[in-house]
Simulated assay, not measured.
Amino acid sequence: MKTYNIFISHAWKYSEHYHKVVQWLNEAQDEGQFKWKNYSVPEHDPLIDPNTTYGKKKLKEELEGQIKPTSIVIILSGMYAAYSEWIDFEIDTAVSCEKYIIGVKPWGQERIPKKVSDNADVMVGWNKNPIVNAVLESNKGE
């Protein structure tokens, strides 16, 4: 059974979306579809203030360290408007490291941020099966 190393974009304010994707990937693992390792860390160190120059630099270093060892990056595009600077950084890092990018459309939303759609290898709907299928079809497991 293949194991997939996955980073899921996340924002602390939208952690329920992150946790839902984790739940779906865990269910797929429990069903024997694949194994996966989560390289995301949705809760940040409260001592790092991303609104300061040092804090922003430190957070970017941490995000880069989370993305580099993965094979797949899942971008939750529904958070884009509020967190475009960070999601842009995650996308740019994933592209520069040649990661397979799965873009996830927000539930009930037709418009997708151009940055996400232009860089995603595949765009899928907000549902378990499309996300799980995109992971399996990526052929990025080990």
Score class of each variant (00 low, 15 high):
Val95Arg: 13
Met1Leu: 13
Gly103Asp: 09
Ile72Gln: 02
Ala82Leu: 07
Trp86Gln: 10
Phe34Asp: 08
Gly78Glu: 05
Glu142Gly: 14
Tyr14Ala: 08
Ile101Lys: 10
Glu43Leu: 08
Lys2Trp: 00
Trp12Ile: 01
Ser96Arg: 15
Ile8Val: 15
Gly78Tyr: 01
Leu47His: 01
Asn26Lys: 15
Asp30Val: 07
Tyr18Ser: 02
Glu110Phe: 04
Gly32Gln: 08
Ala134Gly: 04
Gln66Ala: 12
Pro106Trp: 02
Thr3Pro: 05
Glu110Gly: 06
Ile67Cys: 08
Tyr18Met: 03
Gly78Lys: 05
Glu85Thr: 12
Val122Arg: 11
Pro46Val: 02
Arg111Asn: 14
Phe7Arg: 04
Ile91Gln: 07
Ile131Thr: 06
Lys140Asp: 04
Lys60Phe: 00
Lys105Ala: 12
Leu25Lys: 10
Val41Ala: 01
Lys128Trp: 00
Pro106Gln: 15
Pro113Val: 11
Glu61Tyr: 00
Asn26Trp: 01
Asn26Pro: 09
Asn5Tyr: 09
Ile67Lys: 04
Tyr14His: 11
Ile131Asp: 08
Val41Tyr: 02
Thr53Lys: 10
Ser138Phe: 06
Pro69His: 02
Ala81Glu: 14
Tyr54Asp: 02
Thr93Met: 02
Tyr4Pro: 03
Trp12Gln: 07
Gly141Asn: 07
Gln23Met: 13
Ile8His: 06
Tyr14Pro: 03
Asp118Glu: 13
Glu16His: 14
Ile74Thr: 09
Val95Cys: 13
Ala120Trp: 00
Val95Lys: 15
Tyr18His: 13
Tyr80Trp: 12
Lys35Pro: 01
Thr70Trp: 00
Trp12Glu: 02
Glu43His: 03
Pro46Trp: 03
Gln29His: 00
Ile102Ala: 12
Lys20Cys: 04
Asp30Thr: 09
Ser84Lys: 14
Pro113Asn: 12
His10Glu: 09
Tyr80Ile: 06
Thr52Gly: 05
Lys60Gln: 06
Ser77Tyr: 04
Met1Lys: 13
Val116Gly: 11
Glu16Ser: 15
Asn119Leu: 06
Glu110Asp: 14
His17Ala: 12
Lys58Asp: 01
Trp126Cys: 07
Gln109Gly: 05
Leu136Asn: 08
Val22Trp: 03
Ser117Trp: 00
Tyr83Gln: 05
Tyr80Lys: 07
Ile131Ala: 05
Ser84Asp: 15
Val104Phe: 04
Gln23Trp: 03
Lys35Asn: 15
Trp126Asp: 07
Leu63Phe: 04
Trp107Met: 11
Met79Leu: 07
Trp24Asp: 12
Glu27Pro: 05
Val132Leu: 07
Asn38Tyr: 04
Ile67Pro: 05
Val104Leu: 06
Gln29Ser: 15
Trp36Thr: 11
Ser96Thr: 15
Gly32His: 11
Ile67His: 04
Thr52Phe: 03
Asn129Met: 10
Pro50Asp: 01
Phe34Tyr: 09
Gln29Trp: 00
Lys35Ile: 03
Lys60Asp: 02
Ile101Thr: 12
Ala81Asn: 11
Ile74Ser: 08
Asn127Met: 13
His17Phe: 05
Val73Glu: 03
His44Ser: 02
Asp88Leu: 12
Val116Glu: 07
Gly55Met: 01
